[in-house]
């Protein structure tokens, strides 16, 4: 008991409890299917961002291609369930295993690269995936995308915004729990060392490449699973899900919310999904204001929103 109490007092696991509470209470505030839809979109992005944040925030590796993995997951589910009549769960698993393998094979040559070269390589990877999806229209429906059936779990159909809300909320809590475990494990300490200085970590006898590969694969698989979830929830997938802009959006969520801050990433996802909805009435001004908000936040809070705000509230410097 006292052990659990102690855990809850640590900011990390106390945060998990708060997240669970928010997920439980939020539906009371949501009034219609559209608001649930926005909440689900936030959730789906947030889960991907939790995984990506491990990579960017804790290992210091940039990926500008994670939407590619998301897209692969989405299209695996779409193609396998629609064209080959697989069950939704089997398709989701097959997609994530496939993406995991691809990520594993590519991880070593890609993660050998540093800084901007790594950014370029992951960006290229993502773009190649989206071009293939858009071009092979006999399989994928081409640029106009393809419809996807509902998610049948055995005989039960997950249908409607409310059902999906609970699925996504559960996945979000699960992913945060997994991430916190990784962060607090010996692996996690090694990861933070990698971000600090790779050479120093190597000198200390840590197999940095091994950990980087692990996190890269983990974050790719999470992206793939959420791609599958997205495909079934929205009932429609297009190549833009795998595209460059989606990748940039995901990275922006991480950086805006706070690198190496698991909850910060969730906040980033919340803001980036909500902002276009809030700005939608501004028509021609939307881009200007969106760009401005992005710039100003990063200029004045370079560590990201959540770390900066918590830092200020604690009275210290962020």
């Amino acid at each position: 008991m006292s052990h659990i109490k102690h855990l809850l007092k640590t900011p990390r696991y106390g945060g998990l409890l708060a997240l669970v509470l928010i997920c439980l209470l939020l539906p009371l505030l949501l009034q219609n299917a559209y608001q649930f839809d926005v909440a689900i979109k936030v959730g789906i992005s947030a889960v991907v961002v939790v995984g990506l944040n491990l990579l960017i925030g804790y290992t210091g590796q940039i990926s500008l291609g994670h939407a590619g993995f998301f897209g692969l997951g989405a299209y695996s589910s779409a193609i396998l369930t629609v064209n080959y009549e697989w069950s939704a769960l089997a398709a989701l698993l097959a997609g994530s295993v496939g993406v995991g393998l691809i990520a594993f094979v590519l991880a070593r040559p890609i993660l050998k690269l540093k800084g901007h070269y790594l950014a370029m390589a992951t960006l290229g990877l993502g773009i190649i995936i989206s071009i293939v999806i858009a071009t092979e229209d006999w399989l994928t429906g081409g640029p106009d995308g393809m419809g996807v059936g509902p998610f049948m779990l055995f005989d039960y159909e997950i249908y409607g915004e409310k059902a999906w809300y609970w699925v996504v909320a559960a996945l979000l809590v699960l992913s945060v729990w997994l991430a916190l475990n990784i962060i607090d494990s010996p692996v996690g300490r090694a990861l933070r060392a990698v971000h600090g200085s790779e050479v120093a970590a190597q000198v200390a006898g840590i197999d940095t490449t091994h950990y980087k590969v692990l996190v890269f694969v983990f974050s790719a698989v999470i992206a793939s699973v959420m791609g599958s979830v997205f495909a079934h929830y929205s009932g429609f997938v297009t190549p833009t899900e795998a595209g460059f802009f989606h990748s940039i959006e995901l990275v922006t969520m991480v950086v805006l919310g706070g690198m190496a801050s698991t909850y910060g990433g969730i906040l980033g996802a919340l803001i980036l999904v909500l902002l276009p909805q809030l700005l939608s009435g501004l028509e021609d001004l939307e881009m200007i204001i969106f760009g401005l908000i992005l710039m100003l936040t990063m200029i004045f809070m370079p560590k990201g929103l959540l770390p900066t705000v918590t830092g200020r509230l604690k009275g210290g410097k962020a």
Binding site: P11, G14, G15, L17, A18, I22, L26, L29, L30, Q31, N32, Y34, Q35, V38, A39, Y263, L267, L270, I271, L274, Q277, L278, L306, V309, T310, L313, K314
Partner: peptide, 21 residues
């Protein structure tokens, strides 16, 4: 945990702002 749960709380309120006018 307090500070940021407040932030998230106030942001969920902004969702309400998107309700039918």
């Amino acid at each position: 945990m307090k500070p940021w749960s407040q932030i998230i709380g106030s942001l969920t309120l902004s969702l309400v702002a998107l309700s039918p006018s």
